[in-house]
Computed example of a mutant assay.
Amino acid sequence: MIRAIRGATTVSNNDEREIIDETKQLLIEMIRQNDVNAEDVVSVLISMTDDLNATFPAKALRHLDGWTYVPVMCMREINVPQALPKCIRVMMTVHTKRAQQDIHHVYLRDAIQLRPDLQLTKKLDM
């Protein structure tokens, strides 16, 4: 079965190191909570809001052992008025035996407000 795992986080500044570090933390948590192996990943899409452009957040994936050959693409988020600023979103498409309701979507930092309806949403204080 192919399923998508969603995740999002925010950064405080348009800073290369912070963007990479926060994206890496989000990816690690998505992988951990869903028992994802790189070999089972179809692709990863990463978007950022217009106020972020210091680096490609996909660089964070390249820092993970075994993830060299996973296809990843960065893009801009739609610029909606009053949208959450400095936000990084991830859509990871994977092969899994998990039912849709058993997928753990991960929202960190200020991004927890994007999907408060998900029970497993949590805020990690960094």
Rank of each mutant, 00 (worst) to 15 (best):
L120C: 05
P71I: 10
T55H: 01
L84F: 06
Y69I: 04
R6C: 06
E22I: 03
K59Q: 11
D21N: 15
I112P: 00
D40H: 07
V42Q: 04
V72M: 12
R6F: 15
L84G: 01
T121I: 02
V90W: 03
R76T: 09
R98N: 11
E22W: 04
M91H: 02
I78P: 04
A60D: 10
A38K: 01
E39T: 13
M126D: 14
P57R: 14
I28E: 14
D117C: 00
D40V: 10
M48R: 10
D40F: 05
A58D: 06
C74R: 06
L27F: 13
T121F: 00
E39A: 13
A83K: 06
Y107N: 01
R98Y: 08
I19S: 13
D125P: 00
D35E: 14
R32E: 12
Y107V: 01
A8N: 02
D50Q: 10
D102P: 08
S43D: 13
V41F: 05
T121R: 01
I46A: 00
L108F: 02
T55F: 12
M1A: 12
S47V: 02
L118M: 07
E16T: 12
N34C: 07
T93E: 10
P85A: 11
I20Y: 01
G7D: 00
N79I: 11
A58Y: 06
M91L: 14
S47F: 05
M91D: 07
P85H: 08
A58G: 14
P81E: 13
C74F: 03
E39M: 08
T10N: 06
